[in-house]
């Protein structure tokens, strides 16, 4: 089983083609779109989580490459500066995917990094600026 977050760049000529649809229909993969946008230069960008058997995953990636999609691994990730975090909890209701969880006994805030989609919303909303984007 693999479970990977990847960044797909769609050149302008591919933006109107149903590539992700084919990727899923033709391969036994589970997907979750974490982010999708078309830039000013009309290039497509998508952050995708792909889950499935290694063999299916490899075939899927090969299909994307052949179609002309440029693939990168998710190169940015959000980390918590433990020195700066005061465990106030302001982040809890801000994160769209519920990465931050309150431990009701210690009242400390757990940062469940695995759930993070690196959207970065927490970075500017954290009062002591403890959340950092790393490339």
């Amino acid at each position: 089983m693999v479970d990977k977050k990847i960044v797909l760049h769609f050149p302008k000529r591919l933006v109107d083609r149903p590539i992700v649809s084919h990727l899923i229909k033709d391969h036994d993969l589970e997907f979750n779109i974490l982010k999708a946008s078309v830039t000013q230069d009309e290039e497509g960008l998508m952050v995708l989580e792909l889950k499935g058997k290694q063999e299916e995953y490899d075939k899927g990636i090969a299909y994307l490459k052949e179609a002309g999609v440029i693939i990168e691994s998710l190169s940015q990730n959000v980390i918590r500066n433990e020195e700066r975090c005061t465990h106030c909890g302001a982040c809890i209701t801000i994160c769209p995917v519920g990465v931050f969880e309150l431990d009701t006994t210690t009242r400390q805030i757990k940062f469940q990094e695995k759930k993070c989609i690196a959207c970065g919303i927490c970075i500017k909303t954290c009062p002591p600026r403890a959340m950092e984007l790393h490339f």
Partner: peptide, 22 residues
């Protein structure tokens, strides 16, 4: 501190700005 309150019939998630652990 339970993480949710009910206001106008709606469950509303809560967040603290002060740090209880500290």
């Amino acid at each position: 501190k339970s993480g949710k309150i009910t206001l106008q019939g709606k469950k509303v998630p809560t967040a603290s700005l002060s740090s209880y652990p500290r």
